[in-house]
Amino acid sequence: MFDSRHIQTFAEVVRTGSYAATARDLGYTQPAISQQMKALERAAGTPLFVRAGRGLRLTDAGQVLARHATGILSSIETAHGQLKAITRLESGRVRVCGFPAANAALLPATVAHLAAAHPGIRVELLEEEPPDSLRALREGRCDLALAFAPEHTGDGAHHDSGEGLVETELLDDPLLALLPAGHTLAGSSHVELGRLERERWIAGCGRCRGHFVAACAAAGFAPDIAFTTDDSLAVRGLVAAGAGIALVPGMTLSLLRHTEVVARPLAPAGSRRVSAFVPEGHETAPVTALMLRTLSEAAAGMEPAIA
Rank of each mutant, 00 (worst) to 15 (best):
A276S: 07
E192R: 13
T288G: 10
L134C: 12
L178E: 09
L165F: 12
A222C: 04
A300F: 03
S188K: 08
I7W: 01
P119F: 02
P130W: 06
T9M: 13
R138T: 11
G162P: 03
V239P: 01
A115K: 08
T110F: 15
L48A: 06
T22A: 14
I7C: 01
A104K: 08
V248A: 08
R57S: 15
P100N: 12
E151K: 02
T294D: 09
A222S: 13
G27T: 04
A215Y: 05
L73Q: 03
T228M: 01
T259R: 14
E169T: 04
E283W: 09
I225G: 00
G164I: 04
P119R: 03
E199Y: 03
A269M: 08
A117N: 03
R200T: 08
S188E: 13
D143T: 09
S161H: 12
T78G: 06
E199F: 00
S75N: 06
Q30R: 15
S254Y: 04
T9F: 06
A267D: 12
V123C: 12
H258D: 15
E41N: 12
T87D: 15
D25F: 02
L83S: 12
L176I: 06
T9G: 07
H113K: 14
R198E: 14
A186P: 07
S271P: 04
D143Y: 07
F148C: 03
S75C: 03
P47I: 09
G237N: 10
M1L: 11
P304F: 01
T284S: 14
A21C: 06
T284P: 01
G250D: 05
A203C: 09
R135A: 15
G204K: 01
A219T: 03
Y19W: 14
W201K: 01
P279W: 02
A289L: 00
L256P: 08
G187W: 05
S74A: 15
D25S: 15
A101I: 00
L255P: 10
A149E: 13
R207P: 03
R141N: 08
G237K: 05
A116K: 05
V248I: 14
G120L: 04
T22V: 11
P279C: 10
V261A: 06
A222N: 03
L179N: 06
A69Q: 00
V274W: 05
H118I: 04
P265Q: 05
R24M: 11
G194V: 09
Y28R: 14
E41T: 14
S161E: 13
E41K: 15
P100W: 01
G98R: 07
A263P: 06
